[in-house]
Design a protein around this nucleic acid. Sequence first.
DNA 1: GCTCTTATTGATCGAGTGATCAACAACCTG
DNA 2: CAGGTTGTTGATCACTCGATCAATAAGAGC
Lengths: 211, 211
Amino acid sequence: MSTLSARNRRKSPAERAAEIALAARQIALTEGLAAVTVRAVAARVGVAPALVAHYQPSMTVLVAATFGAIVAAEIDEVAAELAACPTSVQALGALIDTLLGPERSAVTVIWLDAWSLGRSNSALATEVGRQMDAWQSFLVAQLQAGVIRGEFVTDDAPALAWQLLGIIDGLNAHATVRYGDARTERPLVRTIAEHELALPAGALRSTAAGS
Amino acid sequence: MSTLSARNRRKSPAERAAEIALAARQIALTEGLAAVTVRAVAARVGVAPALVAHYQPSMTVLVAATFGAIVAAEIDEVAAELAACPTSVQALGALIDTLLGPERSAVTVIWLDAWSLGRSNSALATEVGRQMDAWQSFLVAQLQAGVIRGEFVTDDAPALAWQLLGIIDGLNAHATVRYGDARTERPLVRTIAEHELALPAGALRSTAAGS
DNA sequence: GCTCTTATTGATCGAGTGATCAACAACCTG
DNA sequence: CAGGTTGTTGATCACTCGATCAATAAGAGC
């Protein structure tokens, strides 16, 4: 009927490209990076498969770009959230709260896909490296801000950032894969951060809720 | 020549099944779990693709079994290594050394593949859960042995084991994905373990080398 | 040596994948 | 309203995957 007869309007390249990128992100978040195929994206946009191919040099780069866009958006989102925190201690606590929160599982799955698929998709592998660097830089900036403010003490923020991110990613991976399992608390991340930054014990306990 | 004319000998089902399982493990370790296909395994064994399918109810279960075999073998290997340690402190130190060692990257990649592929292969997902439980049980046993011996102090070994494994997996994933990157030391795992088990600082530093 | 069980094969199907290209048609420009 | 630019399509290719099945032949038992 109407849906069938609704021949697709012609759109500007920029607009169409944005549609495709959006559809790719949605598919990745709901069905995984491996599900981002020419046909799947085309079907979601409501367009012929050839058009998707027309807008992309190759599907491997679309997958890589999709991954990059999702992660970059997350970094921006978290950054915006942290910017509202008055102290570095609160910011770090909020960061850990957010990164360990249950609503992150969709993105965690994307990371797992990317780590696995990166072996056979070099464009994706490059993007994975880029986004890991971006996260580390972001965390380093947070830590150094705390040092400057006199809240944190550390002599190697970059190395600490790498380790904290690795720890968080590992805990998230476990939590995501063992979905539905006993929802164990994971207080060690905060304990570690407090210990390594010379904070008093409990300083990073979730102070999020409440004004 | 000889290789071509060498028509395949008939083998007992058990023998052939073992060959297939071995080939699948080798392929998984060198090219990833996703490369374990009917044709790849058949080619490695030197047999027709149909034979591999004949020995397996479905490829998804072969992939799951291959993953399980690789991880189970690793647990056995590590367990044998730790059994030689006279004290629980040394055993835990050796465990961390081994798990963080560079020669583990092949298995780490298998874990990443399994986590990603598990979403579309329920048999694999089940096996992933099983092997994660196996690792956790193993570590819990180690920790409790140390508690009984009076070397460790902890009130929740199971939760601690889960977190330590998550941390180790995350650090390994990062190290594997960022291959060739600055080989940073990752002393936090030992620091955490010492802190959580009421050990003196430095107790878990690699004492591996030397008699 | 013959027979019979069964391990093994070749051929093939159906469903995916990415990618290409001539043809079409929607829209802008004149 | 005509003409040209270009966004869009349908058809199709080459390749991969898992899976099936009749036909073959290797080897054990007699």
